[in-house]
Amino acid sequence: MSRRSRIILAGRIVFAASLAGLIVYFAIVGLDKADKLASTIGVVVALVAFFGPHLLPASPPSGADRVEDSGNATATSGGSANTGVRGGGPAGPATVIRSGDARADGPASVANTGIEHRG
């Protein structure tokens, strides 16, 4: 069993236990208090569902090219320097964060510090 599937299983168990606990609690305290508490819980869950995705860091799409904290590169005499992402086909998802300096010296030299797709 992978780590991800264990986390999902643990989440499902916690959810089921929470749901069972709420049902038992609502049955014990009566419908009036249960209704008030359920309304409050509903508002909190709605707010978390609405704002939660905006508070979490964005992750790159799966299968995306990713470069982070690359070094410096220099191209001379018509060469090519790249510290980011270079692709040969159609543009796909790619992320470059804090790439290094790319420097081109001489005629026909090319430097790139970001994303370059050649289609």
Rank of each mutant, 00 (worst) to 15 (best):
M1V: 02
M1W: 00
S2Y: 00
R3V: 03
I8W: 12
I8T: 15
L9A: 15
G11V: 02
R12N: 12
I13H: 05
I13V: 13
V14C: 05
V14M: 05
V14Q: 03
V14L: 10
F15R: 06
A16I: 15
A17W: 07
S18A: 14
A20V: 12
L22G: 01
I23G: 09
V24Q: 06
V24L: 12
Y25L: 14
F26I: 09
F26N: 09
I28M: 14
I28N: 13
V29T: 15
G30E: 13
G30H: 12
D32E: 15
K33A: 14
A34F: 07
D35E: 09
K36F: 10
A38G: 13
A38R: 08
G42L: 01
G42V: 01
A46G: 03
L47C: 10
V48A: 11
V48H: 06
A49R: 10
F50P: 05
F51G: 10
G52Y: 07
G52T: 10
P53C: 05
H54L: 13
H54G: 05
L56R: 06
A58Q: 15
A58S: 13
A58P: 07
S59L: 14
S59N: 12
P61A: 11
P61N: 06
G63F: 12
A64C: 14
D65T: 10
R66K: 12
R66F: 14
R66T: 13
V67E: 05
E68A: 08
D69M: 02
G71N: 08
G71V: 11
G71A: 11
T74K: 03
A75L: 04
A75E: 04
A75I: 05
A75S: 06
A75M: 05
T76S: 07
G79V: 00
A81H: 06
A81I: 10
N82Y: 11
T83V: 08
G84A: 04
G84W: 01
V85Q: 01
R86D: 04
R86E: 12
P90I: 09
A91S: 13
P93S: 08
P93N: 09
P93Y: 05
P93D: 11
A94I: 05
I97H: 07
I97R: 08
R98N: 06
G100Q: 00
G100I: 01
G100C: 01
D101Q: 03
R103W: 08
R103A: 11
A104K: 06
A104H: 04
D105W: 06
G106I: 02
P107H: 02
A108H: 06
A108K: 06
A111D: 01
G114P: 10
E116R: 14
E116M: 11
E116Y: 11
E116H: 13
E116W: 11
H117T: 15
H117M: 15
R118S: 14
